[in-house]
Design a protein around this nucleic acid. Structure first.
Lengths: 199, 199
DNA sequence: GTCTATATAGCGATAGAC
DNA sequence: GTCTATCGCTATATAGAC
């Protein structure tokens, strides 16, 4: 209450609110089908009122994606230099958690698929996101090979791609039919078998 | 040339042409972002001219999905009662082939992700498609268990879901970054390991 | 910082002429 | 079978008042 003008500026709150509502809206209907007027409305703003904070729709999308990446990377422990199996188990934990935030999962899934066309404003984001995730896991697997906990014959880059493919594919099936797909259990079963295979 | 009016009606050609162009357009930009005027234009038709063949946009989408399903199910040999490993190898062949038809793959990927919201006109299609595919493969795996070529401990329904998850996830990565993702090789490696594991 | 008003463009669908 | 014309609606973005 009584927001002190020196430290807690109103503008920053508005920005956060807009990003939050935009995230939900993009997750529900994708980027192209969501109007900024609808997002503005959910914030109790007029459409030009929203455009006071973001110059255009693409800039708003970018802010949403930055926010989402920060959440995910924090949860993954991106910087923590995890070794092979630890990184895989961390991913299984992430999928467990994702079942409680369907909105975020839907945002990622809808946007990534929408962004497969090269001219989409989120195409570079999708490309870099896969590269980052793949390098994170491939690095962890290489570390596991180095310390002898993972067999030398396995291909870290290929396994990394397969793991994220399984994760995304299960997310898609879960989103389409949430009551009949236990995403976390299916992913954990895959990870357990994979760990047994690569050890 | 010189189309005989009795057998080869012009209207059927037009319908096929419209479906073909609609498929490409939906694959490029999704359903919601594609206008029927744009599809009509690619066919050398006006927008009301197109609506002479399909009463509305959703009906056109349905025709496109029917067409796509027919292509896929034919290629899978849906009716042929394949046993365990044969069905898995057939899927690997399908992924090989898919690398030559990126448009069809994109159609499926973009539409399925768009259709995760329950009100989307393709939502039921996506749901039934996964159910059909999952039952096809789960049935084949059960047949493999029955004839002793697959271990009794494996869960046919779970493995079937995982296999299609891997397929879809690799498709997504391939579409985002075609030059750096060898979808067919990654899927075949997964299938080979899976066959070794379940045998 | 937020508004009203508006410019400009696109959408799906229908009516009716040829 | 295909067109022009048009309705009613929605979109992004800008101009300018308060």
């Amino acid at each position: 209450m009584t927001p002190h003008p020196r430290r807690r500026r109103r503008g920053d709150d508005r920005r956060e609110q807009i990003i939050d509502e935009a995230l939900k809206a993009f997750a529900d209907n994708g980027y192209r089908s969501t109007s900024i007027a609808e997002i503005a409305d959910r914030c109790g703003l007029s459409q030009p009122g929203l455009l006071h904070y973001f110059p255009n729709k693409a800039a708003l999308l970018e802010a949403v994606l930055d926010y989402r990446d920060r959440l995910d990377y924090d949860r993954l422990g991106f910087d923590q230099e995890l070794h092979g199996k630890d990184a895989l188990l961390r991913l299984a934990q992430l999928v467990d958690h994702n079942m409680h935030v369907p909105g975020l999962v839907r945002l990622f899934t809808v946007l990534t698929s929408e962004a497969v066309t090269a001219d989409h404003p989120a195409h570079d984001w999708a490309l870099n996101r896969y590269r980052d995730l793949q390098e994170f896991l491939a690095g962890a697997l290489r570390a596991g090979i180095a310390d002898g906990s993972i067999r030398r014959e396995i291909d870290p880059a290929a396994v990394a791609r397969q793991v994220f493919a399984m994760m995304d594919g299960l997310q898609l099936q879960w989103l389409v039919d949430p009551d009949n797909v236990d995403m976390a259990a299916l992913f954990r079963a895959y990870i357990d078998e994979l760990i047994a295979y690569i050890a």
